[in-house]
């Protein structure tokens, strides 16, 4: 249910730690971009699997829709989080 947000958190802290302890500018940029790609991949995978599996019980369905919402929040957050990597030199 909280997958999207957990992915956001992983992405955020990876980027922060890279910038804080990571050293050179171009290296950080490449690494951060790869991280973001991987995380967005995970978001997509999670999304697809959630869309496909529709549980039978009402609570399961509620959880699934909440999970999709979390993916929406998380996805938006991850995209916003990536913008500084593109737009700022160190």
């Amino acid at each position: 249910m909280m997958g999207g947000l957990i992915l956001w958190a992983v992405h955020f802290f990876l980027l922060y730690l890279l910038a804080e302890f990571g050293g050179g500018a171009s290296g950080v940029r490449v690494a951060a971009s790869l991280c973001t790609l991987a995380i967005l991949g995970a978001v997509a995978w999670l999304g697809v699997s959630m869309v496909r599996n529709v549980p039978q019980d009402p609570f399961g369905r509620w959880r699934r829709r909440a999970g999709l919402l979390a993916l929406a929040f998380g996805g938006l957050g991850i995209v916003l989080q990536y913008l500084p990597v593109v737009l700022i030199d160190r």
Partner: peptide, 14 residues
């Protein structure tokens, strides 16, 4: 570093 401030700015918006 400006890029780090950017991360926190983005999260603050989100």
């Amino acid at each position: 570093p400006p890029m780090t401030t950017g991360f926190f700015s983005a999260a603050s918006m989100a």
